[in-house]
Amino acid sequence: MKKTLVTFVLAASVSLGATAAHADILSDVKAKGYIQCGVTGGVAGFSAPDANNVWTGLEVDFCRAVAAAVFNNADAVRFTPLTSQERFAALSAGEIDILSRTTTWTMSRDTDLGISFIGTMYYDGQGFMVRKADGINGALELSGAAICIESGTTTELNAADYFAANNLEFNTVVFVDQDEVVKAYEDGRCDVYTTDASALAAERSKFAVPDDHIILPEIISKEPLGPVVRQGDDLWFKINRWSYYALLEAEELGVTSANVDEMLGSDNPAIKRLLGVEGDFGTPIGLNKDWAYQIVKLVGNYGEAFERNVGPSTDIGLERGLNALWTNGGLQYAPPIR
């Protein structure tokens, strides 16, 4: 019995030690002077580097927003491109501080992997892309077609379920990396490319002749895509969560990167609290009282980030849809800062 007790205590100590090693991420981040952010290798509009290795995208902007809140410097962030297979291990091992990589929020991921989802940066769903010349008008016509899929994603299970439910022959060509999937589709090694509809639009925008490819109308799944942090550090979780909410709250209140300085003089109590003019909502989460002001000043609000990265005026051309604010018929909603 003593041996059993000692073994249990030692195991508990090891577990607590492992948790403690990552229990003060804010201090670790401040000590090194930047946030390490895990992203995709390159999905236009979400996270992709340019020729000078400058990263841009909606998910990149989330990490920049957290850097603005912590450092008053949106550029105090470095990016680690990760495959679907690598992403959760890298987060758990402490190789990255935030995972902001087109990651779908599911129950099993939320409960089994020792991670916490911050919120939904983009409400998405899985779709299918085909060549216009093939004359396919809907997903129910895809029986027996060769379908390119990235392994280690929710895409595989969603597609398998859809084909089984509709008694269609399921024929996949599986690749480890999304770039391999896209190249295989472009090279004609498969007839169909399936992934999140936003990613399909992003990849199509980079094709030589985008109009030669169509995204079918069917959306076969719910894919709430959002940033993730390790469990075990509640403060770091709250910093990330409220950075996300600040982006939404700023848009709802009409505070933008262009007018944020003018808004410091607003009589609206909600704007005063958001920008740190009234009350101190930064200290409880280890930040300065103007943390949200810094986010809006240096990154903008959610609507600004959406428009410049994936909105209708970009090559990707996505409408807000479900990603509109709740006041405009969408799902994006932030609890009040008060």
Rank of each mutant, 00 (worst) to 15 (best):
L248G: 02
E249L: 08
E249R: 13
E249K: 13
E252V: 01
G254R: 01
G254K: 01
V255M: 07
V255C: 06
T256Q: 01
T256Y: 01
T256K: 02
V260P: 02
G265Q: 10
D267F: 00
D267C: 02
N268Y: 03
N268C: 08
P269N: 01
P269L: 02
P269F: 02
A270T: 03
I271Y: 00
K272P: 06
K272M: 14
R273V: 11
R273D: 00
R273L: 03
L274V: 04
L274G: 01
G276L: 07
G279E: 00
D280C: 10
D280I: 09
F281T: 05
G282T: 06
G282P: 06
G282M: 03
G282N: 06
P284R: 00
I285R: 03
I285Q: 04
I285T: 09
I285F: 05
G286F: 04
G286E: 03
L287E: 00
L287H: 01
K289N: 15
K289R: 15
A292V: 09
Y293I: 09
I295C: 11
I295Q: 07
V296R: 09
V296F: 09
V296N: 11
K297S: 15
K297T: 14
L298H: 13
L298F: 09
V299R: 05
G300E: 12
G300F: 11
N301H: 14
Y302H: 14
G303D: 13
G303T: 14
G303K: 10
E304D: 14
A305I: 12
A305K: 09
A305R: 12
F306M: 15
E307W: 10
R308H: 13
N309A: 08
V310K: 08
V310Q: 09
S313C: 11
